[in-house]
Design a protein around this nucleic acid. Structure first.
Lengths: 188, 188, 188, 188
DNA sequence: GATGAATGAGGCTTCATTCAT
DNA sequence: GATGAATGAAGCCTCATTCAT
């Protein structure tokens, strides 16, 4: 095996891209991302063949991290509401703790360059939460609604909640609770 | 008086931009928009000083049209639920009827180039609906929640609903109803 | 004869061009000149077929005005030194009084667009002064030097003098005198 | 280390710009300069951030070269007249040898894009010659005249002389002598 | 003649990507 | 692998000039 590509450098690029996307938007030059990552502009292409490739991997990485964080330390048993609430808290807390990651992910989500495959993989990462949701809504007012629709509603409520938490961070926890109650009323 | 600046041509540009943004994204060349509008390259700049200016005006125009459509023919009296439902139907129907307009608006909404002023004006256009919402939630479970947060939740549910309607157009009407019931459970 | 082109408008354009060239340089848009002249942008081309044409006419007009001013009220007789001094004063005073005209003329003089014909006509306008100079130098140290060279030297001294007068306007008169004495030493 | 920024390439651009300015004027496209320099379009901007930057550096480089050439091999002692004459010869010979450089410098000198700093640096480069001049005029007829004015006069005589030398190159040397005598009469 | 909208060629510059070192 | 100079396609916008009104 030749000198392996450094994992550190890969991470540095991913992190730099996150920051740069937040501050300059998706049209930020790759050269700027490289500079921010502390590497030469051509080196970026050793780790990611194209800018699109970088964006796709970044998107997926962020989405996966978010999803993983959400279900971390979730009690395997316990009543469904508590379990969903735990996930909800993990999720929204993550967004408060890493606002750049959320912002970058938001930009990437609407950008043409993210492929259908990447999006699909992102959805898969969210599967555990969606599963939980499915279980919960089974006996509620949305029992007949197609699951993807319910998932979309949950997501959109989460987004709205996190947006508002970001706007008024002092009461973030409180807003998270309000959002959760709203979600609960929707699906239960 | 020479050729006056033609309203038709302005509209042609606005329409062309809508279509082109949908098919090529926000980074589409102005030249393509001009071509699509059937005018010369440079003529676009007679009507909009810069691409950013075009995007801002387009965004506001779409948002305003959407908001106006939503409250059209809304009975001045009648119970609040019926009135909100009428608006909801107008709104979601519009999005089904003009999917490009909604898509373009979605892209523009997340783009850095849309100024704070434009966004503020967009919010003002939505005011009538927000007012209706405010009235309704006064006695409901969200009576203590800040209005902007409630507005954001409504919007996000609308978006999720319209997304799903677009994915499964045959049952659009049904999905709109589901979305509305979800909203109603949230605020009432 | 149809409605004649208005002489006023022509002058307005000429004056506007002078001002605009001073403030924006030769690459100033014709549209700006038109605006400054208080006419529509297309109207400029009724009076001057092309921008180059305008610049050529403007150059010649400025040069001619300068030359005419220089020899105005010059005593037909009197000793040559006094006559040249009168011209010199007229000339340098004009440049002080109309700094924009001098500046614009300076820009135009070095610009490719001024044709050889225009330059030749400009030289012809200076002929009376050059004639005076010729007479004077006949018995001086430059009697054998080709006249165009002597003319060039005079011109360059005049330019240097007017430049310095413009830089230190309070002592303009004094500087003009110094310049004249320098010239005199050169040719007498 | 990758390909280092090549001094050759920088020079090629500087030289190409000189030639192109002479043949096409200051409004010549950067693309043409690049082509003439044998490099790609965009490479020019690796060496000079903007066209203005290129023009400023070119101007300064030409002015500096001219000034350095003028004082080259000037005897440290010797009488002032001889020393000034040596400089004068060096100076005018340079202009004859590199007519394009002089022409380009002339265009640049009158162009708005050359900054005050660049002009100041150009003046500094001329300082040695101006110093010589100052010494000489101390006891002459211009002893009371502000030095910048005297410097301006010298310059203008040099310009007029070099113009005439260029027009009649066969007698260039002779004309240079005439110009020098004229200058000497002025300041001694 | 006057107006100012329409035209479209062209210029400067940016930037993803390649490649010599 | 790492570097950063080299490449050249492309984009936004300007502007002299034309032409419909």
């Amino acid at each position: 095996m030749p000198r392996p590509k450094s994992q550190d450098k890969r991470s540095a690029i991913i992190d730099a891209a996150t920051r740069v996307i937040v501050s300059q938007g998706l049209s930020a030059p790759t050269a700027l991302i490289a500079k921010e990552a502390g590497i030469a502009n051509g080196s970026l292409f050793t780790y990611f063949a194209t800018k699109t490739e970088l964006y796709n991997q970044l998107y997926l990485e962020l989405k996966t991290e978010m999803a993983r964080t959400a279900i971390k330390n979730m009690p395997a048993d316990g009543n469904p509401r508590d379990r969903l609430f735990t996930a909800w808290q993990n999720w929204t807390t993550w967004s408060t703790k890493y606002p750049d990651k959320r912002k970058a992910m938001g930009q990437l989500a609407v950008c043409d360059e993210i492929t259908a495959e990447t999006r699909a993989a992102g959805h898969r990462a969210m599967q555990p939460i969606v599963g939980l949701l499915e279980e919960i809504r089974a006996n509620g007012s949305m029992s007949k609604v197609p699951m993807p629709f319910v998932g979309g509603l949950m997501n959109s409520i989460a987004e709205a909640t996190m947006d508002y938490m970001a706007q008024d961070p002092k009461k973030a926890k409180e807003h998270a609770k309000v959002g959760f109650e709203a979600l609960w009323r929707l699906i239960s």
